[in-house]
Simulated scan of single mutants.
Amino acid sequence: MELERRRIAVAGASGLIGSALVRSLTADGHEVVRLVRHTPRDAQEVRWDPERGQVDAAGLAGCDAVVNLAGAGVGDRRWSEAYKRRIHDSRVYGTQGLARAVASLDERPRVFVNGSAMGFYGETGDRVVDERSPAGSGFLPELCVEWEAAAEPAEAAGVRTVFTRTGLVVAREGGAWGRLFPLFLAGLGGRMGDGRQYWSYIALHDEVAAIRHLLDRDDLSGPFDLTAPEPLTNREITAAMGRVLRRPTLFTVPAPVLRTVLGEMAGDVLGSARVVPKRLLESGFTFAFPGIEDAIRAA
């Protein structure tokens, strides 16, 4: 049963998912402690340096839960070797530092929720995958494996540890859809490549609700896919965007153009990820916006 008021630390509180989670928690009366890179301004801020894995553990004292959603944006820029290192270090070293800080406390949090991504599975084609499926190969799958493994100190200390393998978040404020909405509203939207690749999406509302579900349920641990129940192809999602926004979807971005513009990151856009939230559904979670048109309207 959820406590009336809890103290919850959130890393990545200024990001798309983190800021929405903080709003949800504070609206329900919970105390949120934000992990920040600058000198803390009050008791609701804790200093950390994720790339170096350094955390002021004392600031986490008294927290019932720690949520780590921090990391350099995967889609923020073209992947140079230097930026790939930043993506890696901000996630892996940040998670290691937080997990060690959690493990070092005399009175540890009840739960450590650590971000991950559906990129864990890599290219799946038409094959349906869930939490029982093995990791794929390539930069993102290998990153996700290392990212999740970095939480081991917290698990070894007996803290219930959860991994949220999040899909493409349907939101106006950022992420993939933050870039898609302006294009489609301008009538410039269309499928990417041949449009047959599966996109596993989730409405921002459901993403936050799922994280809170995992925070509250003491019997849940390990990986959970945070994606809507029915993944769709890019072609189907493009058509849904056109219907909801009442705009034409005549444009197509050929795969060679995407590879030229995005470089290695194009593989993530053109790749197929048919991921289903098997464990989340089995735990009794109910999606408010399971269909793509509902998720688009909610955004």
Results as ranks from 00 to 15, higher is better:
D294G: 13
A203Q: 05
A209F: 03
P50N: 08
F139T: 02
P153G: 03
T233G: 03
I8D: 01
G158W: 06
G73F: 05
R172D: 10
T124V: 02
A58K: 12
G187C: 10
F112S: 13
D194K: 05
A299K: 06
D49M: 02
G136I: 04
A57L: 05
R246Q: 14
V113H: 00
N114Y: 08
V208C: 10
R172C: 05
F184L: 04
G222L: 04
V244E: 11
L262P: 10
V145R: 14
G75A: 14
D49G: 03
V66I: 01
G263W: 04
F120G: 06
G97S: 09
P256T: 05
L262M: 14
A209V: 00
T252M: 00
T249N: 08
G271K: 06
V32C: 08
A58L: 04
E152D: 15
V46R: 13
E123N: 01
F287A: 11
R110T: 02
Q54Y: 04
A11N: 04
V92R: 05
R100L: 07
C63E: 02
S200V: 00
R165P: 00
A70G: 10
V111H: 09
T161F: 06
V170G: 00
R279Q: 13
G175W: 08
F285Y: 14
G167A: 03
R127Y: 00
L188I: 04
V36A: 14
A27W: 00
A61V: 01
A210E: 10
V10F: 07
V111L: 01
P229Q: 03
L188F: 14
S283C: 07
V92H: 07
G167F: 02
I8K: 05
A255T: 00
A99K: 12
R91H: 13
R160S: 10
W147L: 07
R212D: 05
L3Q: 14
G195T: 00
E146R: 15
V169E: 03
P50Y: 04
S137I: 02
L16K: 10
F287V: 03
R191H: 07
L226N: 13
P134C: 11
A295K: 00
P256K: 04
I202T: 01
D130T: 13
L98N: 12
V244N: 12
I8E: 08
A99T: 06
F139L: 09
A266M: 06
L25M: 08
A228R: 02
A288V: 09
F287Y: 12
L105F: 10
T252K: 06
V36P: 12
G115L: 14
V22K: 08
V33A: 05
R212T: 01
E148F: 13
Y83D: 15
V10L: 11
G62D: 02
V36G: 14
A176I: 03
G271P: 05
E45A: 09
D106T: 15
H205G: 09
D126C: 00
D194L: 00
L183A: 14
P256F: 03
A240K: 03
G222F: 09
T124F: 01
L214R: 11
I202K: 04
L214Q: 09
A157R: 09
V170A: 05
R108P: 11
E31W: 07
L98V: 05
S116E: 07
